[in-house]
Amino acid sequence: MSTGRVVIGGSSGFMGQYLQQKYRSEGREVTTISRAGADYRWGDQTGIDQAVDGASLVIGLAGKSVNCRYTPDNRAEIFRSRLNTTASLGAAIMAAAAPPPVWVNSSTATIYRHAEDRPMTESSGETGTGFSVEVAKAWEEALFADALPRTRRVALRSTIVLGHGGVLGPLKNLARVGLGGAQYDGWWPVTKSRQTAGTAHLPGAKHGRQKFSWVHLEDIGRIIDFIEEHPELAGPVNAAAPHPVDNTTFMATVRRVLGVRFGPPMPRWMLELGAIGIRTETELILKSRWVLPDKLTDAGFDFAYPTLEPALRESFG
């Protein structure tokens, strides 16, 4: 197991807080970068340069949450928050006298197209279209933009991360009030402005059959450890459990784990109105994300949570 200093950029979020606790409990020194409440703040390039120089591992997690309405201002901030922070870490690594040997930066499995026909892997996956895909592509381009010959870079294409908090909090509340049914796609009017912006979700999978790829938060930490210890892993790496399910199965498992017996299907019109009310987008639940972790499994990675129900039981525990 590696013992050197870890730099976490974007340390205040769901994954960042978990990784801080994990590495400190293992006795590793951790340096944090965030907008506030960290050792260094974004924009303090001199401080970030000092933090990165001599580190063993740099982890980039920063970026505005996509759990919002895709207004022009929010779209701009989603891009800016990812590209500027990634560029800042890259500049620090380029300037370092002792650059870190490994830089793991967040990406997203949303880079792949809506997939109902076959799973997407690092070698055979096809990129999609639209706003979310363009964000993912630009994020990875920023990671690999500069020549950093002494630093191995990995774009961690994360699926939905399960754990205490995160996306499961609202789902838990919905299920307990009888709204934990499968989420059904269907027709919904799309404005020209949303078509132009690439934020329109067109009808896809029927009857809750959109695929749901996921990974447990503990496995995220274990994946990063595995990447650090396996120099053959570079470029895009899918962070996804090896047994994805469809939306109907996912929501049924949520209800079973919570002991909720009933959950009627939620039609598209109800989902859209609800998304407007809580200021989010239905793409997050209606796009079929079918992703497999070929690079990890081929390298011998063993998931602590390969199947859904144990992962949910731990997350809701």
Score class of each variant (00 low, 15 high):
280 T>D: 10
309 E>M: 15
304 A>Y: 09
91 A>F: 00
300 G>R: 13
294 D>M: 08
260 V>W: 12
149 P>E: 04
221 G>L: 09
73 D>V: 04
210 Q>T: 03
229 E>D: 06
173 N>R: 15
159 T>D: 05
169 G>R: 10
257 V>P: 02
251 M>S: 05
27 G>T: 02
172 K>P: 07
95 A>T: 02
278 I>W: 14
234 A>P: 12
150 R>D: 14
105 N>F: 05
73 D>S: 09
75 R>T: 13
190 V>Q: 04
38 A>N: 12
15 M>I: 15
229 E>Q: 13
15 M>H: 14
113 R>D: 09
163 G>K: 06
228 E>R: 00
76 A>G: 07
112 Y>I: 11
306 P>R: 01
24 R>V: 01
165 G>Q: 03
288 S>G: 15
128 G>E: 14
119 P>L: 04
152 R>N: 10
207 H>P: 15
270 M>G: 12
209 R>Y: 11
168 L>G: 05
164 H>F: 15
283 E>K: 02
284 L>K: 01
304 A>I: 07
61 L>D: 14
218 E>A: 13
3 T>M: 14
28 R>Q: 06
188 W>F: 12
290 W>I: 05
280 T>R: 06
61 L>C: 15
301 F>N: 07
85 T>W: 03
235 G>S: 13
303 F>K: 06
112 Y>L: 02
244 P>D: 05
128 G>W: 14
293 P>R: 03
27 G>L: 09
36 A>F: 15
172 K>H: 08
125 G>R: 10
193 S>L: 02
55 A>H: 00
186 G>V: 08
114 H>Q: 03
191 T>F: 06
85 T>M: 13
167 V>N: 12
104 V>E: 01
160 I>Y: 05
161 V>T: 08
259 G>C: 04
134 E>M: 01
50 Q>C: 11
156 L>F: 12
14 F>L: 10
254 V>Y: 03
69 R>P: 13
185 D>T: 13
177 V>W: 13
80 R>L: 03
298 D>T: 14
42 W>Y: 14
88 S>G: 03
101 P>N: 03
79 F>Q: 05
178 G>K: 04
58 V>Y: 00
140 E>I: 06
232 E>C: 15
149 P>S: 04
294 D>W: 01
48 I>Y: 00
306 P>F: 03
168 L>T: 10
121 T>Q: 06
301 F>S: 08
144 F>K: 02
211 K>E: 13
280 T>C: 15
50 Q>L: 12
62 A>H: 06
152 R>Q: 07
253 T>W: 00
66 V>I: 11
102 V>H: 01
94 M>H: 11
145 A>R: 09
10 G>F: 10
49 D>L: 05
49 D>W: 00
182 A>N: 13
32 T>C: 11
231 P>K: 14
184 Y>K: 13
189 P>V: 04
72 P>K: 14
13 G>L: 13
281 E>T: 09
209 R>N: 10
312 L>R: 06
106 S>E: 00
184 Y>W: 14
245 V>C: 12
155 A>Y: 10
78 I>K: 00
179 L>V: 12
288 S>Y: 13
293 P>V: 04
178 G>T: 12
268 R>S: 09
222 R>L: 06
133 V>K: 02
120 M>P: 04
111 I>R: 10
194 R>V: 08
172 K>I: 01
